[in-house]
């Protein structure tokens, strides 16, 4: 399969007054279409910085980040916004749904920023909610949904634009273990349907659901290997 993401020797440097922090030093990584990958690391390892760059929320200080062969490391703010809109589907630990909007409106939102007409937006949002089995809750606000349901709305929102990657940052962190397993089962299904999934986590248990494990420590890749003890959700 083709390379979806090619990261070559990127660094990220933060300057805080006189202190210079190297959050990432010389990280290279290639992700192919359809991969199921976890990026693990303790807090302060540079894992979040790496995720921000992967998710086009931030750009590297040096190095090259190619997405579908296009260098995105030097895009301007509007172009990065467009990248996030089209290619990145974010799933956050705390769901990050807009509380004033109902489930369907939340799912529609990325399409609104893509300029999709209202009728088509609604249709695609409903399909996306059907995919996560929440079509019957489409008119509920986040506060009227359980944690697991909220996370499924967030996944529906991430999927609605058919992005290149699903980028999930501690997706089970705010859920009880049973609900967490349900969410991981959903990711498994989505992977089998051909989606490229990147899990960011500090928990080995969660990382074990992925096929490939990348471990980041002190701003560099410590190991990058296939997962031999993969957890299979029944």
């Amino acid at each position: 399969m083709s390379n979806l993401i090619e990261i070559n020797h990127i660094t990220k440097r933060y300057e805080m007054g006189d202190n210079v922090v190297m959050a990432l030093q010389d990280v290279s990584l290639t992700i192919r279409q359809g991969e199921y990958l976890s990026i693990m690391g303790p807090s302060g390892s540079g894992k979040s910085t790496f995720m921000n760059i992967l998710g086009c929320l931030d750009t590297p200080t040096t190095g090259e980040y190619k997405f579908r062969g296009v260098d995105v490391s030097h895009l301007n703010d509007d172009e990065l916004s467009a990248m996030r809109n089209r290619e990145i589907g974010f799933v956050f630990q705390n769901f990050n749904l807009l509380p004033k909007l109902d489930a369907a409106q939340n799912v529609e939102l990325p399409l609104a920023y893509a300029g999709v007409p209202a009728a088509e937006r609604r249709e695609r949002a409903v399909r996306s909610l059907e995919r996560v089995k929440l079509a019957d809750r489409m008119h509920h606000r986040p506060s009227e949904l359980s944690g697991g349901q909220r996370q499924r709305v967030a996944i529906a929102r991430a999927l609605v634009t058919n992005p290149g990657i699903l980028l999930a940052d501690e997706p089970t962190g705010a859920l009880d273990s049973k609900t967490g397993i349900e969410i991981m089962r959903l990711f498994d299904e989505l992977h089998q349907e051909g989606n490229t999934i990147i899990l960011i986590t500090h928990e080995q248990d969660i990382a074990n659901y992925a096929i490939r494990n990348v471990y980041i420590k002190d701003g560099a890749i410590h190991y990058d290997r296939l997962n031999s003890q993969r957890t299979i959700v029944k």
Binding site: G55, D78, S81, A82, R84, N85, R86, N96, L98, Y113
Partner: peptide, 16 residues
Amino acid sequence: TREIGIRRAIGARKSD
């Protein structure tokens, strides 16, 4: 601020 962050993450431009 959080809402703005969410909107930006899913593709809102500064001008939006």
